[in-house]
Amino acid sequence: MDRRQPGLSVRLKLTLSYAGFLMLAGALLLVAVGVFLLRQGWLQTNEAGAVRVTPGTLFLRGFAPTAAVVVVFLLVFGLLGGWILAGRMLAPLDRITQATRTVAAGSLSHRIRMPGREDEFRELADAFDMMLAQLETHVAAQQRFAANASHELRTPLAISKALIDVARADPNHDTGELVDRLHTVNTRAIDLTEALLVLSRANQRSFAREQVDLSLVAEEAAETLHPLAGKHGVTLETSGDIAPTTGSPALLLQLTTNLVHNAIVHNLPQQGTIWVHTGVRPHTVVLTVENTGEQLTPQLVATLTEPFQRGTERIHSDQAGVGLGLAIVKTITEAHDGTLTLTARPAGGLRITVELPVASGG
């Protein structure tokens, strides 16, 4: 930490500035009065009659002492008044400082809530309160994510330990069945770990950018997941125009694959449909994935991009994933300076729209 030499407080600086300005103004006023008196000249009468005293002598004897007293008074008044005024002016800043120390001690829920009319200090306090609210939300989300990730990672490990304990207690247990179950559990743990790595990579924006056509990415994702769609009895349709954007081909393919996979496994039990469409707007390109399915409430839709949040069918599906699909989609979208919109379809199912900046010259 940079250790700086102690200096004057802002209040003292304002006090000295106010007092200095007041003394300067008073001194200029006294000088102006003195010059005026010197130019006009004064008459002094004694017993012998009227005698004209030289202006300089009269000035030194009469006006100068009075002027000195006035200057001293202005100095005292300026220091005292400046100290009081500076304290009143800096009171909001002191309140902000105290709030900062409280927050630094770990109380992110503290707010300044500056009263009074709108001014520079009020704007600073409101901006500080807004920053604290965002920081509190971010920290709470990170804490929930860490707790959920720990729980999700602990589950397959606990299952593996239980399977091994059972096999150890019963040497005659079918090892083939044990290996298959361990393989399934370990595969889920690996998938979760890889999803966490993708999420971390997207959050850090540590990827090279190049021009990508979202329509080709959508076709590749649809072709890859076509067998899974057939297994679930879901019809997968792709359409749209060339949609050039800039970003990571691997991450954008992950985004599209997650959307299509999510639309497949959370569809109707039979005769479901998925529509994948790409398009171009004046300044953006759009990828829309829409699927049939159960009726979803706006409250549920609003939580689907939270890590480890699952809808009504996710827990029971053998293709439920690790609960990070839409969270990864959201993170990748934000890392590419895009926007993600989730809307419940009136007829049931979900419409997800990803809007990304169009590539230059696209």
Rank of each mutant, 00 (worst) to 15 (best):
G81S: 04
M89R: 15
G116L: 10
V139H: 01
G106Q: 04
H110T: 07
A140Q: 07
G87V: 05
A104L: 14
M130V: 01
L132K: 04
R88V: 02
F121R: 03
M131K: 05
T102H: 03
W83M: 08
R117W: 05
T102I: 08
A105R: 11
R111H: 09
T100Q: 07
E118V: 08
A99Q: 11
Q134Y: 00
I84E: 12
E123S: 14
T137A: 09
R111G: 08
A140Y: 03
M114G: 14
I84V: 14
I112G: 14
G81Q: 02
L85N: 10
A140M: 05
R122P: 01
F121T: 12
M89Y: 15
T102L: 10
E123H: 12
Q98V: 09
E123G: 09
L85F: 10
F121K: 04
Q142Y: 01
L132D: 01
G116E: 13
L85E: 10
A125M: 10
G87C: 06
A105L: 06
T97E: 15
A133I: 09
D119E: 04
L85D: 11
H138C: 02
T97G: 13
G116C: 11
L93G: 15
Q98D: 13
M89D: 08
D119S: 03
S109Y: 02
R88G: 01
P115G: 13
D129R: 06
W83C: 03
G116H: 08
G116A: 11
A104C: 00
L124H: 10
A104T: 03
R117D: 14
W83V: 03
P92F: 06
L124C: 09
T137C: 00
D129M: 07
P115F: 10
V139G: 01
A141P: 00
F121E: 12
A104S: 03
G82I: 00
L90C: 05
E120L: 11
R101M: 12
P115I: 08
T102V: 10
R113Q: 14
A104W: 01
A104Q: 08
G81K: 01
A140C: 02
D126G: 03
G87K: 04
H138V: 06
M89L: 15
W83I: 01
P92E: 05
R117T: 12
A127M: 06
P92C: 07
L132C: 09
F121H: 10
G116T: 11
H110Q: 13
S109P: 00
V103N: 02
F128E: 08
S107G: 02
P92T: 05
Q134T: 06
T97L: 14
F121D: 12
L124E: 13
V103R: 12
R122C: 04
L135R: 00
F121G: 04
T97Q: 14
M89P: 03
E118Q: 09
D126T: 14
I96V: 15
D126P: 00
R113C: 03
P92Y: 05
D129W: 09
D94Q: 13
I112A: 11
L135A: 08
H110G: 03
R95V: 10
D126H: 07
G87P: 05
R95E: 15
M130L: 07
L108F: 06
G81I: 01
M130R: 11
H138Q: 08
R113N: 15
A127V: 03
I84Q: 12
